[in-house]
């Protein structure tokens, strides 16, 4: 089949458009990248988690187990937010996308950071007026650190299985909380202004963000 002899314009062809200004092109690129990663759906889920946190902080749970138990439901919600961000790192295009120019790493980094900020915002809003153990300082530390774990998981396991890392960390934290852990690597168990825990969480987030920026999520045919 050739195009010769087909004189009429094929139906449905868009008229030639005016070229984008660079700034608009950049925004358009960021938007398309975000849509390809299902960022709008992720934002919706993060907002829902914020609402869930708001509800959970107001319900009078019949809680036993002291402060450790008090924090565990909010921590589960925070970790769920981190898992959503990690899974959003998955890209559907594979090699054609990786074989493009220089923008992809920046887009990955921007998506990860923006979603982490959005998660913090949604959860902080959900915690407003409630008694969130550790307050917003601990919230930021927990979300950032566990998101970093999720991003590392995406690099290693692929985007679709990246949620397994935060889930495993949550279970480990649950066991650690039964004791009185002093290691900063279990940062949710540490006081909100614990510098070591903050550094660990920040370091893990930085490592995850860096690796996802440079390497992107592992692409597995299982995805």
């Amino acid at each position: 089949m050739t195009a010769a002899g087909i004189h009429s314009t094929p139906r449905g062809t868009a008229p030639a458009e005016v070229a984008y200004p660079p700034a608009v092109a950049g925004l358009r690129l960021a938007w398309l990248h975000a849509v390809s990663r299902r960022v709008p759906a992720a934002l919706g889920l993060l907002a829902a988690l914020g609402v869930l946190l708001w509800v959970s902080l107001r319900y009078h749970w019949n809680v036993a187990g002291g402060p450790a138990a008090q924090m565990f439901i909010p921590l589960t919600i925070e970790t769920g937010a981190a898992a959503v961000i990690a899974v959003a790192a998955y890209g559907p295009f594979g090699e054609p996308e990786r074989a493009t120019g220089r923008w992809l790493p920046y887009l990955r980094l921007a998506a990860a950071v923006a979603l982490t900020a959005a998660a913090f915002g949604a959860l902080a809003a959900g915690a407003t007026g409630g008694n969130l153990p550790g307050g917003s300082v601990a919230l930021l530390r927990n979300v950032a650190g566990i998101t970093g774990l999720g991003l590392l998981g995406a690099v290693v396991l692929g985007g679709m299985l990246a949620w397994a890392g935060p889930m495993a960390y949550l279970l480990v934290t649950e066991v650690a909380l039964q004791g009185n852990p002093t290691t900063p690597w279990v940062w949710p168990a540490r006081p909100p202004h614990d510098l070591g825990a903050a550094l660990c969480a920040a370091g893990v987030f930085a490592a995850g963000a860096l690796l996802i920026t440079l390497r992107g999520p592992r692409e597995s045919e299982r995805d």
């Binding site: 019949n62 439901i73 589960t76 919600i77 899974v87 985007g159 949620w163 889930m167 949550l170």
Partner: peptide
């Protein structure tokens, strides 16, 4: 069949377990 189905199922299940352990704890 969304990419978020797996984490939602996983964390939803975990949250359900946490809620179940805190509900009626002394009952």
């Amino acid at each position: 069949p969304s990419r978020f189905a797996a984490p939602v199922a996983a964390f939803g299940g975990f949250l359900a377990m946490m809620l179940s352990s805190q509900t009626g704890f002394t009952s």
